[in-house]
Amino acid sequence: MSRLDSMLRRLTAQRDGLNWAAEQIADLPGDVLDLGLGNGRTYDHLREILPGRRIWVMDRVLQCHPSCTPPEADFLMGEAEPMLRKLAALGAPIVLAHYDFGMGIKADDVAEAARLSPLLARVIVPGGLIISGQPLEGFTPIKGPESIPAERYLFYRA
């Protein structure tokens, strides 16, 4: 499969997974967390499908498209570990998290996801959902939408 086809599959799975998750949490109170702002596409989509929800965003740097810049109060800039600790200390009730950290080196990305999993667990409310491109530890794997192959995107319940 070409890298272009792989990227299209990943983005389609990401969109379908987020849309599915938004339906799953429709009746649950709480905030949303986007781990890995990048250029802001996912954040922009979350704003569209979850209007009225506070969307926390975390990344090392702010380098997104200007139309996708989160409010300063909702953007946690820095390394993931201290930012997850800060979010936990704030007591933000995260009901949905989208984990999209990674540098594209699979072994390193998997190791980082395992290392961050316990910190992520501290901010997700019981019963909350996590959608991830990397395997996470300490959460209950669940079946996502039928349109997404199991290995393409991962779904968890806290």
Score class of each variant (00 low, 15 high):
Leu76Ser: 14
Pro66Phe: 04
Arg85Tyr: 02
Phe75Gln: 10
Pro82Val: 01
Pro82Thr: 03
Leu76Pro: 08
Gln63Phe: 14
Met77Ile: 11
Arg85Phe: 04
Asp74Met: 11
Pro70Met: 00
Arg85Ala: 09
Leu76Glu: 13
Ala73Pro: 05
Pro71Glu: 13
Gln63Tyr: 14
Pro66His: 02
Leu76Gln: 13
Glu72Tyr: 01
Gln63Met: 11
Ala89Thr: 11
Pro82Ala: 01
Met83Ala: 11
His65Ala: 05
Thr69Ala: 09
Leu87Gln: 09
Phe75Arg: 11
Met77Pro: 14
Gly78Asn: 01
Ala80Ser: 07
Cys64Lys: 03
Phe75Ser: 07
Ser67Lys: 05
Cys68Phe: 12
Pro71Gly: 03
Leu76Met: 14
Met83Trp: 05
Glu79Cys: 03
Ala89His: 07
Leu84Arg: 05
Pro66Trp: 03
Arg85Ser: 07
Ala92Gln: 11
Met77Val: 12
Arg85Glu: 12
Met83Glu: 12
Thr69Met: 06
Ala80Leu: 05
Thr69Arg: 05
Ser67Ala: 12
Cys68Ala: 15
Glu81Met: 02
Ala88Arg: 12
Glu81Ala: 00
Glu72Asn: 10
Val61Ala: 09
Glu81His: 01
Pro82Met: 04
Met83Cys: 13
Cys68Gln: 15
Gly91Phe: 06
Thr69Ser: 07
Glu72Ile: 10
Pro70Tyr: 01
Leu76Gly: 10
Pro93Cys: 09
Glu72Lys: 11
Leu84Val: 00
Met77Thr: 12
Val61Lys: 06
Thr69Phe: 00
Val61Leu: 06
Pro66Asp: 05
Leu62Ser: 01
Leu62Ala: 01
Lys86Met: 11
Ala92Lys: 07
Ala73Lys: 08
Lys86Phe: 14
Ala80Cys: 01
Gly91Glu: 07
Glu81Gly: 02
Leu87Glu: 10
Leu84Tyr: 05
Cys68Lys: 14
Phe75Leu: 13
Glu72Trp: 02
Pro66Leu: 03
Arg85Thr: 10
Leu62Cys: 03
Leu76Val: 06
